[in-house]
């Protein structure tokens, strides 16, 4: 059974979803219908965080969001981080710190960390660990990921102080 045509707002753009199966998750629709395959599927039960997106500014597992119920919400995916020509500070920190190995967990982690630093620019180690405890990484043991957060956080703090002193 198919549901009616509906519109999703992803990274500021409206997308029409047609011919969807009624039980399709937001993750599925993003990946397979909207061809925004940056969000990853590793468990489809909310245990790995690879599919993390922002829904009205809060991180959620897009595999646990019914796609057709996200109509009218602001959805931000990994494709919405950074700009066309430039990657964001957190994305750059990930590359520089060696936080990327296979890269499968990376998009979800970046969305989670970007949101964390937006709400808390200078989190302590334990805060970061709790904030990313829903994002499993099998390659890195998290060491370089935590380092990337420190780099991005330090840069933001330095930048803020610079702006203040101006």
């Amino acid at each position: 059974m198919t549901s009616e045509v509906y519109t999703l707002t992803v990274n500021g753009n409206d997308y029409q979803v047609v011919d969807g199966h009624s039980s399709e998750s937001l993750l599925w629709v993003l990946r397979e219908r909207l061809e925004l395959s940056g969000s990853k599927n590793a468990c489809e039960e909310g245990e790995c965080g690879s599919c993390t997106v922002l829904l009205d500014g809060e991180i959620v597992c897009s595999c646990l969001v019914l796609a057709a119920s996200a109509v009218g919400r602001e959805i931000t995916t990994i494709e919405g981080l950074g700009s066309e020509d430039e990657i964001s500070d957190v994305q750059k920190a990930f590359v520089d710190a060696g936080a990327v190995q296979c890269g499968f967990c990376t998009p979800g982690l970046l969305v989670a960390i970007d949101q964390l630093l937006n709400s808390n620019p200078d989190p302590d180690d334990l805060t970061v660990r709790e904030a990313i405890s829903g994002n499993l990484c099998r390659c890195t043991g998290y060491g370089r990921i935590l380092e990337a957060v420190r780099i991005a956080s330090n840069n933001r703090t330095a930048q803020n102080e610079e702006e203040k002193s101006k």
Partner: peptide, 21 residues
């Protein structure tokens, strides 16, 4: 459907049909 954190697990496994929600 409330938060979806249980229901969607079932839907993704194909054990819960969501024809009308």
């Amino acid at each position: 459907l409330a938060g979806g954190t249980d229901l969607m697990v079932q839907a993704n496994r194909g054990t819960q049909s969501l024809e009308s929600v």
